[in-house]
Amino acid sequence: MNAPAPLRIAVLSFAHTHALSYVHALKQMPGVELIAADPDGSTAPDDAPRGAALAAELGVAYVETYDEAFAWKPDAVVIAAENSRHRGLVERAAAAGVHVLCEKPLATTVEDAIAMREACERAGVILMVAYPVRFSPVVRDAIAELRSGRLGRILGVTGINNGKLPQDRAWFTDPALAGGGALVDHVVHCADLLDELLGERAQSVRAVSNSILHAQQELAVETGGLVTIQYPSGVVATIDCSWSWPLSSATWGGVTLQVVAERGTVTVSPFAKGVAGHDAHGETWNPVGADLDALLLEEFVRALREKRQPQPDAGVGIRTVEIVKAAQASAARGGDVVVL
């Protein structure tokens, strides 16, 4: 078999911290040429390293502007910009005939998400959404177990995506750039897993939220939320999306799905395996297990080479944004049920 032709991939923006692990994963892959551009890094209102300095630290070739990145003629881009800036970059990539892996959530409005899918479909380019958790081997095992029917029909699910306040990048709590707070940041991972597990679109969404956690920071967004979803099959699910781990926690947080079926329950928590301990500064935690970002990137690159649309696609990207928007609308209306 011939060595595959080199693939050119440009990482657009270091706004989302996942950009760092994407660069790391892509650098390990044979036959991938990589550059990065982070033009908005210098104007970010926080102290996190960005732009050329971060690129140098990561060991990736750097260009100053998106124009230069597209002039480099990439085969694909990995978009890790602020949520509300995804659409512009996806449309630009589509116009240039460039495949896209876009950070989650796909967009901050359903209209934007649909427009992005249409742009990519028209251009005949791949649009994949970066939901790495479904690539976790334990999540795959859990889904396979539940799909086997051994435990009977699924009745309900509790999804827990709690973590620290993402405070090293200020835009996460900027409603204009992030599209909201915890309801945006921490609903979509569980919503993606529910989409994959149940294979159906949500029927109704009901949410409540508050801003008690980190209240002293006077953030403009909610920091705690509970989102209840009903599916056409009758399955009920609630997602706790709160940023409820104190900043002193030994790790960032976690994702847990507790699935109740007729003859058993399955609890899967892909970041829960690790080595716990203590050092001079307190509790320590070293995660053990697969690098989910690397597994996501491997599937993206495989799909590029095989010229096929990978999962998770724009469809699930749109359906999960739908749930977020419905949750925001419900919470804003004091917990009214929003029918999709």
Binding site: L155, G156, N210, I212, L226, T238, A261
Partner: peptide, 22 residues
């Protein structure tokens, strides 16, 4: 299975899950 979400008067929100399985 049943899920209940409570909004307390002080703004706290609570999720309660209960199931009778086989």
């Amino acid at each position: 299975t049943a899920h209940v979400v409570l909004t307390h008067r002080n703004g706290v929100i609570s999720h309660l899950h209960a199931s009778w399985v086989a």
